Simulated scan of single mutants.
Amino acid sequence: MSKLSTGIELVSASVRLGGRVVLDGLNLRLTEARIGILGRNGSGKTTFLRLIAGLIAADAGTVRVDGVDPFKDRKAALAALGILFQNPDHQILFPTVEEELAFGLAQQGLPQAEALGRARAALVSEGRAHWATAPVSTLSQGQRHYLCLLSVLLMQPRTILLDEPLAGLDLPTQARLARRFAALPQRLVTITHDPAVLADADRVLWLEAGRVVADGPPAQVLPAFTAEMARIGARDADADLAG
Rank of each mutant, 00 (worst) to 15 (best):
E208F: 10
M1W: 02
L110P: 01
F48N: 02
G142A: 06
A196K: 07
G36V: 10
T173W: 03
P157R: 04
L241I: 14
P157A: 08
D73T: 03
R231I: 13
I191P: 07
D59W: 00
L149C: 06
G44I: 03
P165V: 14
A219T: 12
R187V: 13
G109V: 14
Q112D: 10
H193V: 11
G210Q: 10
S137L: 15
P195F: 04
V68W: 04
R179T: 14
R16C: 10
G243H: 14
G210H: 08
R120W: 02
A115H: 14
Q91F: 03
L17Y: 10
L10S: 05
D240F: 14
L26W: 06
G7M: 07
L154M: 14
V204D: 03
L188D: 03
A53N: 09
K75Y: 10
I37N: 03
D238N: 13
G109F: 11
G39P: 12
E114C: 01
L184S: 09
G117Y: 10
L17D: 05
A242I: 09
R40I: 06
L81I: 15
G67I: 12
R50T: 01
L162H: 07
V197C: 05
R118N: 08
L177R: 04
H90A: 14
W131R: 04
N27W: 06
V136G: 11
G127D: 05
L153Y: 10
A76E: 15
S151A: 12
A102S: 13
Q143H: 06
R64F: 05
L153D: 03
T192A: 08
T46Y: 04
E99R: 13
F94I: 00
A115P: 14
F103M: 08
L30K: 10
L166G: 03
T159Y: 01
L149Y: 04
H90E: 15
D236F: 02
A106I: 13
L49Y: 00
G7C: 11
S140D: 04
Q156F: 09
K75H: 13
L38C: 13
L116S: 05
L116H: 12
V15L: 01
A183H: 06
S2Q: 12
R16V: 13
G19C: 15
F103V: 07
L105T: 02
A178M: 10
V136Q: 08
A201C: 08
L241H: 12
V136D: 09
A60R: 00
N41S: 15
R118C: 13
A201E: 02
S151H: 01
G19D: 11
G233Y: 01
A80W: 01
R20E: 12
L93D: 01
A239V: 10
P217K: 15
D59A: 00
L166K: 00
A201W: 03
V63Q: 00
L49F: 01
M229N: 05
L171W: 14
S43L: 04
G25A: 04
